[in-house]
Design a protein around this nucleic acid. Structure first.
Lengths: 108, 108
DNA sequence: GCAGTGCTTGGCGGAATGGCCAAGCAGTTG
DNA sequence: CAACTGCTTGGCCATTCCGCCAAGCACTGC
């Protein structure tokens, strides 16, 4: 794997890492339906606001969401709706994995 | 976020986490062109075989690849070709991120 | 200005991840 | 059986991630 190839896969992995957390996936899902302020997302996720803010910073750094301050609130929007397509594939993987778990369980 | 929703996003995150590493993405890419034994992948990735083996175990646990022992070698195959679709979207994210980096750099 | 709200950042402890080396294990070959 | 190959597993260390609390910062309103 040469340096150029390495760099390309590093970049891809960075985006996937940004998405690879349940709370962040949930927020992306919520934001696909429209912008939300941090307070709303905090409420929905059910974690400390500082935690949610840091998750949003991760998504922002990856270019997946953008923030805009309006008045006292900061609104986040989904910049990469195409990431939603991930879910279709992931669901497929999940369905098979679940089936295998059942299979393994029944063997035991 | 109720327990059921939590479980769904946990499951999705698990698959994304399995993919969120440069070496693992590279191996998925290689496997999309056909099966490979661990020794070949080790050679291509350029890491210790034990490291590669552990990465493959992560992909296998997520249901993304499958292994089959034939003779002295273990061959891995891609079970979820749909994960390749991720890359199109990731490329798009990368292109925009790169553009922003340039922008930020030029401002400095 | 000062108190209050909304958000971000710093910091800390605990958990998970990733890499290598070494040891173990299965299958092959002499 | 003994030596060898291909792979996996255990263990260790360094690094990163993740959650909360506390502090700081920006804007609003009294």
């Amino acid at each position: 794997m040469d340096a150029k190839t390495q760099a390309r896969f590093d970049a891809r992995a960075r985006v996937l890492k940004a998405l690879a957390h349940p709370s962040r996936l949930f927020m992306v899902d919520v934001l696909s339906q429209g912008e939300r302020c941090v307070c709303e997302l905090t409420e929905m996720v059910g974690a400390d606001m500082s935690t949610v803010s840091k998750h949003l910073a991760v998504l922002r750094a990856a270019g997946i969401v953008a923030d805009e301050k309006r008045g006292m609130q900061v609104y986040y929007t989904l910049k990469m709706p195409c990431v939603l397509r991930f879910f279709d594939c992931v669901s497929e993987v999940m369905a098979r994995s679940a089936a295998e778990y059942v299979e393994v369980a029944s063997i035991r």
